[in-house]
Computed example of a mutant assay.
Amino acid sequence: MTVTKTSVLVLDCAEPETLARFYAELLGGTAGPAPGDGELFLVTGRSGVVVGVRRDPSYLPPSWPVPEDAQQTHLRILVAADSLDEAEREAVALGARPVAAGESGSRPESDRTTLRRFADPAGHSFVLAAVREGLTAGSADG
């Protein structure tokens, strides 16, 4: 018998409650402390995706996009292709910083039709990725 498990991608930062609220608003979800763990906040999105945000008092933001190829990991947030511009406006209004085309490590401007790159308020990288018609927010494609 397999033990029931849940996987959670956890982002470290100095202010987890603030970053959890950022992702909750961006994903249209909710954020709250993890049961029994005052250092971890959980974000649950509409599709049930969970992201954890953990306090690390010694946190230093990633250096991506400099040096090149230093992104290592990132969140990929899937969005309908016709909503990509609106999703970008929402992310920026919430405090995301666009990673401009031409910055070291970023892709060409033509890539903006399907992908937009950002750093969250704590410096973690994430992308808004357009999905083809018929794919759901929980799809692994895109």
Rank of each mutant, 00 (worst) to 15 (best):
A91D: 13
D85L: 05
R97M: 12
V3W: 08
Y59W: 12
S47T: 15
A91R: 00
L26W: 03
V51F: 02
A130G: 06
P65R: 10
T136I: 13
L78N: 15
P16Q: 08
A122D: 13
V127S: 13
Y23H: 01
G38P: 09
Q72A: 13
V49R: 02
T30G: 10
P62T: 04
S58E: 13
R21S: 07
P121M: 13
P108K: 14
L19W: 02
D120G: 07
S125H: 14
V50N: 04
E109H: 09
A34W: 07
P67L: 03
P121I: 06
S58N: 06
E109K: 14
R89Q: 15
R132W: 11
A140P: 00
E17M: 06
L115A: 09
G38R: 14
G123R: 04
R54F: 03
A31H: 05
G142I: 14
T4K: 07
V53M: 09
A14E: 11
L9D: 07
T73I: 06
P67E: 07
R89V: 14
E68W: 03
D56H: 08
S83L: 13
G28K: 03
T6I: 01
S139F: 08
Y23E: 03
G28V: 08
A130C: 02
T73N: 02
T114V: 08
Y59K: 10
D120N: 11
G134C: 07
V79A: 01
S110G: 12
T4Y: 03
D82K: 02
G123Q: 08
K5L: 15
G138H: 00
H74E: 13
E133R: 12
A130F: 02
G95I: 10
A119H: 13
P65W: 02
L11H: 04
D120S: 09
A130Q: 12
P67R: 07
L128A: 00
G29D: 06
P16I: 09
E68S: 06
T2L: 00
